Amino acid sequence: MTTTVEVESEIVPPFSFVAPNGLHALPIAPSPEERAGLSREFVRELYSSGNEAIWEPSAPFYAALAEYMADNGFAYSAMGLFAREEGGVAQCALTVAVAKTDQTDTEIAAQGILAALSGNPYNDARWLDLPCGPAVSCVRVNELTVQPEVTRADGPVELLTGQIQVHVPFSTGPYTVVFTLDTAAMDYWAEFCNMMSAILQTISFESPSEDLSSVSIPA
């Protein structure tokens, strides 16, 4: 099962994409009342095997996180939880943000993004031709040192994390939408790359006419 997410705003032109099953969207909403209600629904979906003892203290945390996301220009944020064949869960985080640009020509905007990202030797920046127009992907792999106070291990633990970021200039205005996927489940990296690729194929800058899951960007 997939969900088509339509993002609406009084300022930014509308766009949409399809979110695959396994992504649990954070309750980003314009009012505290809406965030509180959506947060209660979110924790029940995320911790479907839990109970009120888990749901009640978790809901305010995710409501506050959603408020932070909304205040900082995020249009969509989700946690991805995927069952491993050998047991356990592979986790990722997906965020979608919109930035204003000075350029309305998508080709020129994408070329500028590619030039800027290519200047960092740690970035694997590449040009993409998507159904919705040109885009630029940027992949980074980072090694983090996690202290034993967090892991309860005998010493510091080296943690490898990966990030896929894709910048897609709007074809309908001077904006760029940025999709970012982060994960520490590097053994699941190929699957996350395929998932991101599938999402990118569904991006549309036209207003869908169907009854879709709608997200509003605060003005």
Rank of each mutant, 00 (worst) to 15 (best):
M1R: 09
V5G: 09
E6C: 02
I11C: 01
V12L: 01
P13N: 07
F15R: 09
A19W: 09
L23V: 13
L23S: 10
A25I: 12
A25C: 12
I28H: 05
A29T: 12
S31W: 00
S31D: 10
E33P: 08
E33M: 08
S39K: 02
R40I: 13
E45T: 15
Y47L: 15
G50T: 12
G50R: 00
N51T: 10
I54Y: 00
W55E: 11
A66Q: 01
M69V: 08
A70Y: 06
N72Q: 08
L81K: 10
E86K: 14
G87W: 12
G87L: 06
A97N: 13
T101S: 10
T101Q: 05
T101I: 04
Q103P: 03
D105C: 02
A109H: 06
L114M: 03
A116D: 04
S118N: 08
G119W: 01
N120Y: 02
W127F: 09
W127C: 00
W127S: 13
P131D: 12
P134C: 06
A135Q: 05
V136I: 09
S137Y: 00
T145N: 02
P148D: 04
E149H: 08
A153G: 14
L160D: 07
T161P: 01
T161A: 07
T161C: 04
G162S: 11
Q165G: 10
V168Y: 02
Y175A: 07
V178M: 13
F179M: 05
Y188Q: 10
C193G: 12
N194V: 02
M196E: 07
M196V: 13
S197C: 05
S197M: 02
L200A: 10
T202C: 14
I203M: 06
F205G: 12
E210H: 15
I217H: 13
